[in-house]
Simulated assay, not measured.
Amino acid sequence: MIDRKLTVVLLTLLFCWSSSLAQNTCTIRGQVIGRPRGTVYLYESRVLNQAAKLVDSVCLKSSFFSFQRELKEPAGYILALSNAPGQFYFIWDTNVVISLRSDDLNQSLVEESPVNEALKSFSDTVTMIYDKRLNEISQALSQGRAQNDTLRVKQNYQDYYTIRVKQHTSFLAFMQAQNESWAALFLLLTHHKELGRQQTLNLLGAMSKQLQQSQLGSRLKAIINDPAYLILP
């Protein structure tokens, strides 16, 4: 009788342990557009000056591929394709579907991913728009200098400053709206050097406890607090 009870307890514990592992295991289901054969490489993007690490690779089967990996929290990964230029960076946060463009990996798409959708929204509404305008102003500035047009150069500098302020304001608005989202933490990771030490710590401190105490949040805070780390005050 005791042995039977012990067996039931052990089986229950084993089931719970297996279930917890299954809950942390996430899958990538992908397709390479325009490439029926080849090898897809999966790299773990090790943040803050650490080199990316190759963690898996698979051969394409009629353009399709898949990866499975245990994830304790969302993390940055990179996909590369044999005999194809470039690479595709994304956040692996749940079971995701990825369409890789063999002609331009940077134009690949991630579906069914809340974090990647939020980051793409920021890119489409803030990064691309303001970067395009800043590039136009920079070109106009170069032309003004070449033509010794002092008034034009002065106006270009004013326009550039105005756009940068608007871009920064939009960034802060996104961070405030998403301060409980992993997207905000990854965005902070990307822009922390230009923000500087104090503003990075302030934005990190405004995030949820889960994000602050995550592996990524803890590492970012430790790096920022390191006096030897080169960053604006």
Rank of each mutant, 00 (worst) to 15 (best):
I2H: 05
I2R: 06
D3R: 13
D3I: 11
L6T: 00
L11R: 01
T12L: 13
L13K: 02
F15P: 02
L21H: 08
Q23G: 09
N24F: 08
N24G: 15
Q31D: 06
Q31S: 05
Q31Y: 10
V32D: 01
R35L: 07
R35Q: 08
P36N: 12
V40I: 02
L42G: 01
N49D: 05
Q50L: 06
A52C: 13
A52N: 07
K53N: 07
L54K: 06
V55C: 08
S57M: 13
L60K: 01
K61V: 07
F64P: 07
F65T: 00
S66Y: 07
Q68P: 11
R69Q: 12
E70K: 13
K72R: 13
A75R: 08
Y77A: 13
Y77L: 06
Y77G: 15
Y77S: 07
I78N: 09
A80F: 09
L81A: 09
N83A: 10
P85H: 12
G86R: 14
G86Y: 05
Q87C: 14
F90P: 00
F90W: 03
I98D: 01
I98V: 09
S99V: 07
Q107A: 08
S108E: 11
S108C: 15
V110F: 06
S113P: 02
S113D: 00
S113H: 02
P114E: 04
K120Y: 14
S121G: 08
S123F: 08
M128D: 04
D131L: 15
N135F: 15
E136D: 05
I137H: 00
A140M: 12
S142Y: 14
Q143S: 13
Q143G: 12
G144I: 01
G144H: 03
R145C: 03
A146M: 08
Q147W: 04
N148M: 15
T150K: 11
T150H: 05
L151F: 14
L151Q: 10
Q155R: 12
Q158N: 06
Q158G: 05
D159S: 13
T162R: 13
T169L: 04
S170M: 08
L172Y: 01
L172E: 02
Q176S: 07
Q176R: 11
A177Q: 09
A177M: 03
Q178R: 02
Q178A: 06
A183P: 02
A184P: 03
F186W: 01
L189I: 03
T190E: 08
H192Q: 14
E194M: 14
L195W: 00
R197A: 15
L201S: 03
N202Y: 09
L204N: 00
G205A: 15
Q210F: 11
L211F: 02
L211K: 02
Q213E: 10
S214Y: 03
G217P: 02
I223D: 06
I224N: 02
D226K: 11
L230W: 06
P233G: 04
